[in-house]
């Protein structure tokens, strides 16, 4: 058992035992030790199944936003997930008094799709992620991979390895992570291409979209109970059918709906089954928002909860390009 797993289990048991919370939300082993799945632990027995490793990728706070929970609960968050907590608090999807945020600093999550050609993912025992690389230990051998080879793209230019909101931080703070990739440069270079090139780039991606709405459902900022994409029968401009135009209309609309509220967690891109670079769309808008409204990076501390999103408020000094 890893040190982190032990800390996570002990913390969960302590909170449940003391009656501080009714439920602890963490991860347990999924199909394989290298795959994790959310666990809602309401008993000490279940808390024994909790784990923590670099495969704990999906955002847990999002699972709490459905208003299903009446009891007080605790949730484990990484840096990126903690920004989701800010998003949900600001959107009134979570009640600050009802949730204990347990932050765990993170060095990066391992992308099984990236490493599956190099190691047999069914036999992975342990993985260690450091600033220099990723060591994957399997039943037969140890594989040393670079961060680029093993980590999710979203982790390669992570700016928030430590939780930005937490009632308690478990484990040691992570000092600055290496920047293995620069998403903003990629966005800028795409934006500088010709109209035809941009069109070709996006059409090739949007054409594959299955409209499964995983990006929407995994999104920290998508919390509408009744989403317009489920109400297509009332719409004349967006059909349920999968055509390139409808797919494009879906992506453009969704991107704009989360404008100024996207916390850059990258879940949309991670969950997409057909590899659409959704985050390239959202990041562009975030950069535009900063450019227009000077909001900088949003959801970086608990104080940000009181800063309304730029498109949800009006200031007399807002830019007026259309005058």
């Amino acid at each position: 058992m890893s040190k982190e797993t032990e800390l996570v289990r002990n913390k969960a048991k302590e909170l449940l035992e003391d009656g501080d919370v009714e439920l602890v939300v963490g991860y347990e082993e999924g199909t394989y030790p290298s795959r994790t799945t959310p666990l809602f632990a309401d008993t000490l027995e279940k808390a024994e199944r909790l784990i923590w490793n670099p495969f704990c990728v999906n955002s847990l706070p999002k699972l709490l936003s459905k208003g299903h929970f009446e009891d007080k609960l605790a949730v484990f968050v990484k840096g990126c997930d903690s920004r989701t907590v800010i998003r949900l608090l600001q959107d009134n999807q979570l009640d600050r008094d009802e949730v204990i945020v347990l932050g765990i600093p993170c060095n990066g999550n391992v992308d099984l799709d990236k490493i599956k050609d190099k190691v047999d993912i069914t036999t992975i025992i342990e993985v260690e992620v450091t600033n220099n690389g990723v060591n994957v230990k399997t039943e037969g051998s140890t594989e040393e991979l670079s961060r680029e080879e093993a980590l999710y793209d979203k982790c390669l230019d992570c700016r928030f390895p430590n939780p930005v909101i937490a009632d308690e931080v478990i484990g040691n703070e992570v000092s600055e992570l290496p920047k293995n990739k620069n998403k903003d440069d990629e966005v800028a270079s795409l934006a500088n291409k010709s109209v035809a090139e941009k069109n070709e780039f996006w059409e090739a991606h949007f054409e594959r979209c299955l409209r499964c709405y995983a990006c929407r459902n995994a999104c920290s900022a998508c919390t509408c109970r009744d989403c317009l994409f489920d109400r297509d029968e009332r719409s004349t401009w967006l059909a349920k059918g999968k055509t390139l135009s409808d797919n494009e209309a879906f992506h453009i609309t969704r991107a704009f709906h989360v404008a100024g509220r996207c916390v850059d967690c990258g879940e949309c891109e991670r969950v997409c089954p057909v590899g659409i670079p959704v985050q390239k769309l959202n990041r562009k808008i975030s950069l535009d928002m900063d450019n227009l409204f000077g909001i900088g990076e949003i959801a970086t501390s608990e104080d940000d909860i009181d800063n309304p999103p730029p498109l949800g408020t009006f200031l007399t000094e807002d830019p007026e390009e259309f005058m």
């Binding site: 109209v195 404008a259 769309l281 808008i285 005058m323």
Partner: peptide, 20 residues
Amino acid sequence: MKRLLEYVGFEPERLYVKWI
């Protein structure tokens, strides 16, 4: 919005927003 449409490959001259 105009910036976004331009980014996904629309000609920017197609969208006008003007206060009159």
